[in-house]
Design a protein around this nucleic acid. Structure first.
Lengths: 210, 210
DNA sequence: TGCATTTTAGAACGGTCGTACTAAAAACGA
DNA sequence: TCGTTTTTAGTACGACCGTTCTAAAATGCA
C-alpha cells in the first residue's frame, strides 16, 4: 500500500484554483503553487501530472463548485426567477470581488482556450451548459407565460449568455455597480413578458418550442 | 545626428500587435517580437523601452487603428444605424476570425489589466470611450425617435457595452455564427423603438437627457 | 576626412521556468 | 520485523526569460 498522502486533494485543488484564478495560467508558476498549496513540487507532479493537468483539474474543480453549483441551485426555481437569481448572484459577487478575479471560466476562455484544443473544448462545453440552462429557463418561462414571446427562446438564451460573459469581463476592469447593474437590469427586463407579446412581433425560425 | 533607423515604427508596432494579440502578454517573449518585427532586441529596447512599454505602445496602436477608427466611422452615421453598423462589423470580423484572436482590448482587459494599475486605467479609458459612443448614439436616437424610450439611455449604452464584451469573449472560444448573431440581433431589437414606447414603462432616474 | 552620435548585430548575464532525480520517511502485507 | 510501495523533501538540470553589454556599422556635421 505504501505511505499515505498527507494532503487533502480537494483542499489542494481549492488552493490551486485561487492561484490560477487570480493570476492566470502563464503567470502562475509551479513554485507559486508549491507555496499556495503547501505541498512540494514532486507531490504535485505525482498527484496531478504536469502544469497543464494541474490547471485542468483546478478549472474543473472550480466549474463544478462554482458554476455547476449555481446552475443546480437555480434549476430548482421558477424559470423567470431562476434567471433573475442567477444574474443577481453574479452581480453581487462581481461587485464585492475586491481582487477583481472575475470568473475563472471566462478568464480561461481568453487565456488558455485559444491556444490548446483540449482546454478550448472544455471551456466550450461549460459555455454550452450555461446556454442550455438559460434555454431551459426561457423555454419553460415562455410556456408558463412569464418570459417574452417576442424572440425565439434560443436567441434569448444566447443573449443571456453573452450578457453574462460581458458582465464578467467588465467586472475585472471596472467593477462599477451602476455599470454592471445597468447591463443586467436591461437584460432581465428584456426577457420579461410584456403587453406587446400578445402579437407576434418577431416570429423567426425555431420560435417557441413544444 | 547619428545613424538613422532602418525600420518603420508603425510597421514594427503592427507586427508587435499581431504577436501580443494572438498569444497575450506573458506568452509572447521578446524573442518572439524579435522574430515578428524583424529587428533586434537591442533596437526594440532602444526604441520602445522594456516589454511592458512595448505592449502598451502596441495596445495603444491597436486601439487607435481598430477601435478608434470604427467609432469614428460610425459616429458619422445616423444614431440607430451607427449602432447596427458597429455590431454588424464586429459580427463579421468575429466570424471570419479564423485564428480566434478576438479583440486585443478585451484580451488585455483579462490579461494585463487586473495586475497593473497603468494597464487597467488605459483599458478602462477605452471602455469608457466605447460606452460614451453608445450613449451618444442612444441619446440622439431617442431624441429622433429611432431608439426605444423604454429604458434610460445610460442603461441601454451599458447594455450594449456588455453585449459587445460578451460577443468578443465567446468568439474566441465558440466562433459560431448562430450564437453570435443570436446575441447581437436580440440586442439590436432591444434598442429599437417599438409601439410600447408610447407609455413610460420604465422611467428610471436620468432617463432621456436634453 | 574625422568626430560625435545613434542604430545595429549578437553574445552574454543572472534569474526563473517546468520538470526530473535522489534519498529519506512512512505506511502497508508477510 | 522485514521488504515493498508510495509520498515526501530538497536539489539539480537544461531551457528560456527579460535585459544589458560590447562592438561594429552608418549617418550628419565640422
Amino acid at each position: 500500500m505504501g505511505r499515505p498522502r498527507e494532503f487533502d486533494e480537494q483542499a489542494v485543488l481549492d488552493a490551486a484554483v485561487q492561484s490560477f484564478w487570480k493570476r492566470g495560467y502563464e503567470a502562475t508558476s509551479i513554485r507559486d503553487l508549491v507555496k499556495s498549496t503547501g505541498l512540494t513540487g514532486a507531490s504535485l507532479y505525482n498527484a496531478f501530472g504536469d502544469k497543464q493537468s494541474i490547471y485542468r483539474r483546478a478549472l474543473d474543480h472550480y466549474v463544478e463548485g462554482s458554476i455547476g453549483e449555481r446552475i443546480r441551485r437555480c434549476e430548482a426555481m421558477e424559470p423567470r426567477a431562476a434567471i433573475e437569481a442567477f444574474f443577481r448572484d453574479i452581480l453581487a459577487r462581481s461587485i464585492q470581488d475586491e481582487e477583481c478575479k472575475g470568473c475563472m471560466l471566462v478568464n480561461a476562455a481568453l487565456d488558455v482556450a485559444p491556444e490548446d484544443p483540449g482546454f478550448r473544448a472544455a471551456v466550450a462545453a461549460v459555455l454550452q451548459r450555461l446556454e442550455d440552462f438559460f434555454l431551459s429557463c426561457v423555454s419553460k418561462g415562455q410556456e408558463k407565460g412569464t418570459i417574452t414571446l417576442a424572440w425565439p427562446a434560443e436567441d434569448l438564451a444566447r443573449h443571456l449568455l453573452g450578457v453574462l460573459m460581458g458582465v464578467r469581463v467588465l467586472a475585472r476592469v471596472k467593477p462599477d455597480r451602476a455599470l454592471l447593474e445597468g447591463i443586467v437590469e436591461t437584460a432581465l427586463a428584456l426577457v420579461e413578458r410584456n403587453p406587446i407579446d400578445s402579437r407576434d412581433r418577431r416570429p423567426g425560425p425555431g420560435g417557441r418550442p413544444g
